[in-house]
């Protein structure tokens, strides 16, 4: 290995340790368990180091590592399900939490009406937005959050989620609708209240 190659490798190792905390928080949102999240990240980092040569250098290094982590998270999710750690999703199909947001006639309750969040670009660039998002994801019931994160964080299709979670596609849409309504309400409380 030439000097510049090992230098590059060194730089990548430093980048791995810099990115590690955010990878752990990403994995934790989905696995709902800090120890398991750390394990998944550890495995992903080990795989990244082992497969260092297969990194083509065309896309970002962190993005490449992120891709590896997603596979590890999916493996861990499957193991959780096999171990019976997923509560049945049918429990989440009651309409109460959603009904409270709306009046009998289907209009928003006055206090539940969505307000503007300002510039979404600015939100995404703000560290605090991510803290609020993290808090609100953790506050969601595990099984709802899992479906939401498989869809929106892992980018699985609802068809794939149905296969992973053993539910019907229609239920999947119902759960995602619920998750989005709850998350938006929670984020709005956290995001707008601290800002003013």
């Amino acid at each position: 290995m030439s000097g510049s190659e090992s230098e590059e490798k060194n730089e990548r190792m430093q980048r791995l340790s810099a990115v590690r905390p955010r990878l752990v928080s990403f994995a934790r949102l989905q696995l709902r368990d800090l120890a398991q999240a750390e394990d998944a990240v550890q495995e992903a980092l080990a795989a990244a180091i082992e497969k260092d040569e297969s990194f083509s250098g065309r896309s970002g290094y962190e993005t490449w590592v992120f891709g590896i982590l997603k596979y590890k998270i999916l493996d861990a999710l499957r193991a959780q399900r096999r171990d019976g750690r997923w509560q049945p999703l049918e429990h989440e199909l009651d309409e109460d939490a959603i009904d409270r947001l709306f009046q009998q006639n289907g209009r928003w309750q006055e206090e539940a009406k969505p307000a503007s969040w300002g510039d979404p670009e600015a939100a995404f660039l703000n560290e605090r937005f991510w803290q609020v998002f993290d808090t609100c994801m953790i506050a969601l019931p595990d099984n709802i959050a899992r479906v939401f994160s498989m869809r929106e964080l892992m980018g699985l299709t609802t068809e794939e989620i149905c296969r992973e979670a053993g539910i019907k596609e229609n239920n999947c849409w119902v759960i995602l609708h619920r998750a989005r309504l709850r998350l938006r309400a929670c984020i709005e409380r956290g995001w707008l209240s601290e800002e003013n």
Binding site: R15, A18, V19, R22, L23, F26, G60, E62, T63, F66, W117, P120, A123, F124, W130, F133, E152, L153, M154, G155, R180, L183, R184
Partner: peptide, 16 residues
Amino acid sequence: LLHEVGHRFEVFVSDT
């Protein structure tokens, strides 16, 4: 915005 959150999280992570 929530639908974009996964992609943005990746950008956020890559931008330590």
